[in-house]
Design a protein around this nucleic acid. Structure first.
Lengths: 348, 348
DNA sequence: CAGGGTGTTTTTATCGCTAACATAACAACA
DNA sequence: TGTTGTTATGTTAGCGATAAAAACACCCTG
């Protein structure tokens, strides 16, 4: 049948096609396209022209099969719709696109199994390195210890594991907690609630910072006033609702994240409490919702895009450099941002 | 040298390793791992056990080289740190991870060249399909027409090209403009400024909706009151600053996006104007900064995560299905969200 | 003109996996 | 008994690129 030819399946242009048309070897074409030095200018020109003419695109699967470099790095975050991670992601992209890398993104939805599944999937020869904001509980770092043993370059961001020595980029979460609490204390507050977050280093350290600030001022950190907010609006709302049924009412609330603070604000409004007249509220993170011109949440902030950029730089160094490089720790210092949700307590 | 063996480079476990150890053919191993029906239960068990024992991970580059399926889809957005795109991204991820696909993400930073470069990079056999929120000007759709000719499955989100027939998911931007303006008119406003955005279908249609709503009430759309805000806080701020030097001052402002509205709010505060007493402000998009419990921006909103989910579904259908499928258009209807930034004009 | 660079090109041999076809073993049936 | 079908496995031949080594130019030099 003469129709066979027209019926054949769509096939992409390959090196070999170019080689055949120019009557040279595929290897020469490969060299020309990769700007290898030992190709004559004339040949290179011919190849480039033909490649453009045919709209040639290299097959990256084939390339990475032999070079063992995929040109892809992986990023795993708990939730890309969280503006903190979205901004970090932007920072990462800025750097890696400069170096010609691509980014595979995955959200774990704060689920441990999903996180491990996604990382595993990425590891199947697909990524050269990983940036992870892990959801794993702080004491179960075996998984990452294993990655380390397998010589997979990775860096942790936002949170880390106490028992694991690896590269990480975070803020100083102890300081975050301390600064926020210090601010409230310095305004005159004595009864300060903390909406804490369990599981990760972030929550633990912010709580420690909170305790430290209180004790530094001779105040006791009451366990009853450290309640779980889980970094979420809804959980924090509920926690606050219960709190205001107590006899001694708090005059200030420190949310482990801005979302916790939002939950507190929402519940205060519900309870008819005015902020900051009746209750002061402070968060941490300065997410988009807090930083826009009409917001009024006092909070603690630190660099996000820069964190992403540095994470990418660090990872790329690790990928390029020798395997045994010592882990690096980069800390982004937090700073207080005073807005309208905090003020002196009523009786002060 | 007997040390040769220990010095050899780290090599991953392959199918062949498993095959050799079990003394069966690599093909059988491949079949067992891919749950192909014609493999005996016993063999399958042995293979799976050994694979687990050796911590085998398939090399996806090799697989996709032969199957011509990468299991990756690409997403290009103007800016991942914009919460609209971040939420859409989350929706996309939800669906594609269900189907075992991975997501390559890229931000064009609103730069046309970057966008084309990134799409081109993704096309190198790396992605099976694309979801794009394009930055290209509305009348230059040749690039996508070309993609279409090359049979690359793609869907457009958020914006589209008038002269290009392809699958797209957007809100009804004409309605967005109409609803917002209608709200202001119905409150009694007559002098309504529009902070417009040029270039894309989004800006054009919202402006048309604005004009339509005015004319429907016998009001004229003054060109002097349609000023460029470029969807950005800063640009909008400047535009508003100039406006309030005019003799006839506007009593309301419709920002083509929430960011425009934030710019307006910021400048109003600067000028000592109270919102909504002196000026009403309405935005569009209901981004995180507007929707948090302490925000007060009246705006127009539509589904974002759902948009992402549907975009992913549509794309996956296209990838799986026959090539010639007709383009689909999915519209997410906008709805008014009244908060505290709008009210009747002073003299009303 | 043999011998030795230098620069360019070709040859050969994978990378790890799977589609497509071939084969073997055994049961079912006329 | 020979034919056919079924099930489980093996063999062959790439996918599209590149690394490594071999081959071929050419020019220079003694």
């Amino acid at each position: 049948m003469t129709a066979d030819k027209s019926r054949q399946v769509q096939r992409n242009v390959t090196l070999v096609d170019i080689a055949r048309l120019l009557d040279i070897s595929p290897m020469t074409v490969s060299r020309a396209l990769n700007s290898h030095p030992s190709v004559s200018d004339e040949t290179r020109r011919k190849v480039l022209r033909k490649a453009k003419e045919l709209n040639y695109r290299p097959n990256l699967s084939a390339r990475s099969l032999v070079t063992r470099k995929s040109g892809v790095i992986g990023l795993v975050v708990p939730d890309i719709s969280h503006s903190f991670y979205a901004e970090v992601t932007l920072g990462i992209q800025r750097i890696i696109e400069e170096k010609g890398y691509a980014l595979i993104l995955s959200s774990s939805h704060r689920d441990v199994k999903t996180e491990i599944r996604e990382i595993d999937a990425m590891m199947s020869g697909q990524v050269e390195g990983l940036i992870v904001a892990s959801t794993l509980p702080e004491d179960s770092c075996d998984y990452f210890a294993n990655l380390q043993r397998m010589r997979v370059p990775f860096v942790l961001i936002d949170r880390y594991f106490r028992r694991l020595s690896c590269s990480r980029l975070t803020t100083d979460d102890f300081e975050v907690g301390r600064i926020a609490t210090e601010h409230l204390v310095s305004l005159g507050h004595r009864n300060i609630v903390h909406l804490c977050g369990k599981g990760t280093s972030v929550g633990r350290l912010r709580e420690e910072g909170y305790r430290h600030a209180l004790e530094a001022h001779g105040l006791r950190a009451e366990n009853a006033w450290i309640v779980p907010g889980n970094f979420q609006i809804e959980d924090s709302r509920q926690a606050v609702r219960l709190l205001f049924h107590l006899d001694t009412r708090p005059t200030a609330i420190f949310g482990a994240s801005d979302y916790s603070a939002f939950g507190a604000l929402a519940e205060c409004r519900e309870l008819g409490l005015q902020v900051p007249r009746d209750v002061s509220v402070i968060g941490a993170g300065d997410i988009e919702g807090s930083s826009n011109p009409c917001a009024f949440l006092t909070t603690v902030r630190w660099e996000r895009e820069a964190l992403g950029r540095e994470a990418a730089r660090l990872l790329l160094d690790r990928i390029a450099g020798p395997v045994g490089t010592r882990p690096a720790t980069i800390i982004f210092p937090p700073a207080l941002v005073v807005r309208q949700s905090t003020g002196p307590p009523r009786n002060a």
